[in-house]
Nucleic acid binder design. Structure first.
Lengths: 270, 270
DNA sequence: CGCCTTCTTGAAGGATCTCAAGAAGGGTGG
DNA sequence: CCACCCTTCTTGAGATCCTTCAAGAAGGCG
């Protein structure tokens, strides 16, 4: 454990938090001062297993990490793909018994951060508790959209949607044409994420490539010539990613200035 | 808004919280004292619409409530089914822009609880913040399992799994034979939840009935003659529901007594 | 009694899976 | 530098599951 030494990697996580929550200088410093332990993890190997109590959370520094659920026949289903800056199992702070495994999709670097440290920081800074809670809910929004995608889309939609999601998450709001990003994932893993078979993912990708909607060289680089075409194919609406939301104000009592929109929309039709 | 008057309904929500979190007398009273507004909601009608800012959360008092996502063609997908005692959109406290709609599956009674009230209580009692955060994560666990179920199961598994889940959530850990519970849901809604068509849900249910695995009279009452048979058909393992977990200790600094198991299992294979 | 929702049934078509085998890279050791 | 292996990608053909479309039966409710 080397406090402060992983400062730059924690910074990316902090950025993620402050993009949606307001944190004071002191609170930001508390995040950056979290102790951590760097680790390289190989792909196709659970670095957080299923059904155990963990005492730390994992921050992704480099590479992609998948959350895997599985049924009893051993069929695996990826329920989330985490990118650098994500705390992949932040939820374990309040729910230490793992309900899914974590596995790197390609070689990855992670930071293990002890729960005790997070809990200590959170107890001292309630605003950090709120920021972490909110961060978990963003992941939950993505998960929710994943259900819709897997439950209601055909193969083409599912694959296109996933590519769209990763484009936005990895590149931010991209320009409308000629988007490039690194997406080191195998077709088998793509199949585990979309609930398809590897064979069918292959055919689906070929079809998308043939139509010029996606270019995916073997070198893990995805190119999207026309964003609108892919978004249409994937029936993709980026709102659920909560990318462009203003930071929320802090937990606290009545704030006269708070959510003026709500007063009009909230109670809906009744 | 009538403080205290909805005490008994809030009690059920409090029970849900205290089953997994430790709350002091004072904190419990703070929950029970939340102001609220009772409302009857009709089925097949969004009482929380999509894509608006809300200023309150909804506690289910009676009936079943579905969270609906949808794609642009209007195909709806249920991403969660909430039962009495659930705060269906607790997450809206930290993320007021709705990413899915709420709709009663049959006539339901709800309590609308202003965010401001919840935020005030949470600011005063950090332990409540933790309890609410944890509660949200239980819903996320269910959602995660839902992805696995929809992504990797065939029709029979999906339907059986959902029935299993609802049996446990509505009846607690049930006995092994002759389980009865009320499940007022149409086959169309079941189809929206499992990502199937109503026609195929119908055939799947018939098949389960023919085999004697499920009895489902028209009167909304489900009977499960042999739990093990249904659990096998649905490949169901109730661990993810976190039903029988001991309450977690409160957020705070180092607790010597905390999570002794973790020290052994945590770092896994490396 | 008549309407409306929900459930049920049939038949045909399509999307996806399964099984099986070959091609293409990337890496390693000789 | 080549030979080999192993993973990943690709292709084909048949089987299966699920959907679609269409229509009729069964309740609930005014």
């Amino acid at each position: 454990m080397t406090p402060f030494s992983n400062h730059p990697d924690l910074k990316r996580f902090l950025d993620r938090l402050t993009s949606r929550s307001v944190l004071s200088e002191e609170e930001q410093l508390a995040i950056l001062s979290l102790p951590s332990h760097v680790e390289q993890v190989q792909s196709n190997r659970d670095f957080v297993p299923l059904g155990v109590n963990v005492d730390h959370a994992c921050l992704i520094v480099a590479g992609l990490v998948g959350r895997f659920g599985q049924n009893s026949e051993g069929n695996r289903q990826i329920t989330a793909i985490h990118i650098p800056g994500d705390m992949a199992d932040l939820h374990s702070v309040v729910q230490p018994m793992t309900g899914s495994a974590l596995q790197a999709l390609s070689v990855a670097t992670i930071l293990r951060i002890p729960h005790v440290a997070i809990r200590t920081v959170v107890a001292r800074h309630p605003a950090i508790a709120e920021a972490l809670w909110r961060d978990c809910m963003v992941d939950a929004s993505i998960l929710s959209q994943w259900v819709v995608n897997v439950g209601r889309g055909d193969a083409r939609e599912r694959v296109a949607h996933l590519i769209c999601e990763m484009a936005i998450r990895l590149r931010g709001s991209p320009r409308r044409t000629d988007i490039l990003f690194d997406f080191p994932i195998t077709q088998t893993q793509l199949a585990d994420a979309t609930g398809l078979t590897p064979v069918h993912v292959n055919r689906t990708l070929q079809s998308l490539r043939r139509e010029g909607i996606v270019e995916w060289s073997r070198g893990n680089v995805v190119r999207i010539p026309e964003w609108d075409a892919l978004a249409a194919a994937g029936d993709f609406d980026p709102d659920y990613l909560q990318t462009n939301v203003k930071p929320q104000q802090r937990l606290g009592p009545v704030d006269a200035d708070w959510s003026p929109v709500a007063a009009h929309n909230a109670h809906g039709p009744h």
